[in-house]
């Protein structure tokens, strides 16, 4: 049985670094999922090499680009005896942005999307690619004060882009089994970049605050099953926090990072298992 999960998100949304971090969790069998088999791991190794040195994988690393390919991982949930083949195509974020701008996708990727029954949709806190334009209706005074970046006038607002990606998933994901819901795990990555108060809110509350249009879409879907996770692959900022970086380099990767899972009482739990979003997507 070949089931496929797509990693989707705009450029710099955290897909690649997540994949590398999850690779280590699977290898170490430290989460709900465990690895049964992996054939070609060159790409994953190229990315994780950066993490192990206390750096995030850069977006334009030649070694990574050359070894970029679909990753086939055979995994099994700890509670199940069924092996699941995961085809995880890692696609550049530009492809997805182009898909929204042009309403099309190369045949190869369209086919893969149609053969997928789940997707991880990544959105990174504080990414420079996030675009939240102000306008004369909702932020007139601010606009009069600071103006707008003329070059970015025509850039698609991030929440419109993600709402469109969600629409594509609604249209194209295919249930792998009769009666099985198609699932989308929305992953708000770089959760550690939020201020302490915001880190205690749920990922949905974050989306409602920052991207109300996208949050509204997610909350009112009736044809996809959606769960929203927060996630930090290292639990701190390797880029702008030298003290944390020193601790990280001196520690063990498996001890860093968490998934933010909303609890029924409205609070959140930080779970050290970074495979939770994938595990939820493939659970029987």
């Amino acid at each position: 049985m070949n089931r496929s999960i797509m990693l989707i998100g705009q450029p710099d949304s955290g897909k690649t670094n997540y994949l590398a971090r999850v690779w280590e969790s699977l290898r170490a069998e430290s989460g709900l999922l465990k690895l049964v088999d992996a054939t070609d791991i060159q790409y994953l190794e190229a990315v994780i090499a950066h993490l192990l040195q206390g750096e995030y994988a850069p977006r334009s690393d030649k070694n990574i680009e050359e070894s970029q390919q679909d990753i086939t991982l055979v995994v099994r949930q700890n509670t199940s005896d069924e092996d699941v083949d995961l085809l995880v195509p890692d696609v550049t974020g530009e492809l997805w942005r182009g898909a929204v701008s042009n309403s099309d996708l190369p045949q190869e990727w369209m086919t893969r999307l149609e053969n997928s029954d789940g997707a991880l949709l990544f959105l990174r806190v504080g990414s420079e690619e996030n675009h939240q334009p102000i306008d004369w209706v909702t932020a007139r005074r601010l606009m009069a004060l600071v103006g707008n970046d003329v070059k970015k006038e025509s850039v698609l607002p991030t929440q419109v882009l993600y709402s469109e990606l969600l629409r594509f998933l609604q249209l194209k994901l295919t249930s792998s089994r009769v009666g099985r819901a198609r699932r989308v795990a929305v992953v708000v990555s770089a959760w550690d970049r939020l201020d302490p108060e915001q880190r205690e809110s749920t990922p949905l509350e974050y989306l409602r605050r920052e991207y109300p249009l996208f949050a509204g879409r997610l909350e009112n879907l009736d044809d996809l099953e959606v769960r929203i996770f927060g996630l930090s692959i290292t639990g701190g900022d390797l880029q702008d926090d030298p003290a944390f970086k020193a601790i990280f380099k001196n520690g063990d990767l498996k001890d860093f990072g968490y998934t933010v899972v909303p609890l029924p009482d409205g609070k959140v739990e930080r779970n050290p298992d970074l495979t939770l979003p994938i595990s939820w997507l493939i659970e029987a």
Binding site: I134, D135, M143, P212, E219, N220
Partner: peptide, 26 residues
Amino acid sequence: QIADSATMMAFDEISRGTRRWNKGNT
């Protein structure tokens, strides 16, 4: 709350003018 729009790109396109900077004036 906005729940959906089947014409979201159209809305974005026609609202683009509202993001136009006009040297501090509407």
